[in-house]
């Protein structure tokens, strides 16, 4: 979308040997992931498989315990061009303790372009309007976000990322808890983005209407990448045997272990908690910013 200041032919995201530890417990281990410009990648896997953690590591929200990360060819520590990155966090709602209008929430996506103590410029307003049009909420700009449905609030969060005119999008479960018609609108918005040449990394439990958009699927399992290749069907993702066979067929990645008794995740009530929450009043959580 915006002209890239430096020309690079390499991958937009290059993570090699990536590992993430939360509160001292290794969560992600040995992740190699390269995403090319313009690709639409779906990060899939069961609850607790580490797919959200991986996206949080790629955006810098979780520090890497090991490995190296390059964004747009620049090592992470030297990367400051955050206006090229758009992030849609995993959130149930766009509301907070104070009423905020749809326009105001989307306008905060322009912060990467705005100097301190400056009001919105003409270009900022144009970008915000365009973002609202892409997600189909232009007529709701003045409404309070808390009056919108869950699916509409997710679209507001996507518009907020879109307003910064980034080249690379991370979306963390944008369709979780969203009804089917809204999922369709979300998928249409993502199709528009992808057609504009944006690179998209989407964390999804189920793809639903977004399935046809995906170029490539990466399946996470217990903190490791268990499959990386052409898009899979829902059953293939969630039935390890199928994914396993497919992975072997394609000779893409090897699965370290496959626990057979772990068929369909919906029946699995035990949530995989990354770090047990045991703390005294003054103990640190080991995680900054949460």
């Amino acid at each position: 979308m915006s002209e890239s200041p430096e020309v690079h032919a390499g991958p937009v995201i290059a993570l090699t040997g990536g590992a993430v530890a939360i509160a001292g417990r290794p969560i992600l281990r040995g992740i190699d992931l390269a995403v090319r410009s313009g690709e639409f990648v779906a990060l899939m896997g069961a609850n607790g498989s580490g797919k959200s953690t991986l996206v949080r590591a790629l955006t810098g929200l979780h520090p890497l315990a090991a490995g190296s990360l390059r964004l747009f060819g620049t090592p992470y520590d030297d990367f400051h061009d955050w206006r090229r990155v758009g992030y849609v966090p995993q959130r149930g709602s766009a509301a907070s303790g104070i009423p905020a209008s749809v326009w105001e929430v989307v306008a905060s996506g322009r912060l990467t372009h705005r100097p301190l103590f400056r009001p919105l410029g003409r270009r900022d307003r144009a970008a915000i309007t365009d973002a609202l049009e892409v997600v189909g909420l232009a007529d709701r700009a003045g409404d309070g976000v808390s009056t919108l449905s869950g699916g509409q609030q997710q679209r507001v969060l996507i518009a907020r990322a879109l307003a910064g005119e980034p080249d690379l999008f991370f979306l963390d479960e944008p369709t979780a808890g969203v009804d089917l018609p809204s999922q369709q609108v979300l998928a249409d918005s993502l199709r528009t983005l992808s057609a504009r040449g944006a690179t998209i990394v989407l964390v999804a439990h189920e793809l639903g209407p977004m399935a046809p958009l995906i170029d490539r699927a990466v399946v996470m399992r217990d903190g490791r990448v268990s499959y990386d290749g052409p898009p899979l069907t829902h059953d293939q993702v969630h039935h390890p045997d199928l994914a396993h066979d497919l992975a072997q067929d394609l000779a893409m990645v090897h699965l370290d272990h496959v626990d057979q008794g772990h068929g369909h995740h919906h029946d699995d009530p035990a949530r995989h908690d990354h770090a047990p929450h045991v703390a005294g009043p003054l103990d640190g959580s080991g995680e900054v910013g949460r």
């Binding site: 810098g60 929200l61 992030y87 966090p89 766009a94 905060s108 990467t112 991370f170 910013g289």
Partner: peptide, 13 residues
Amino acid sequence: AVAQDQEFAQVAG
């Protein structure tokens, strides 16, 4: 932005 969504603000730099 920081009060509304801290993680988004952090990724925005």
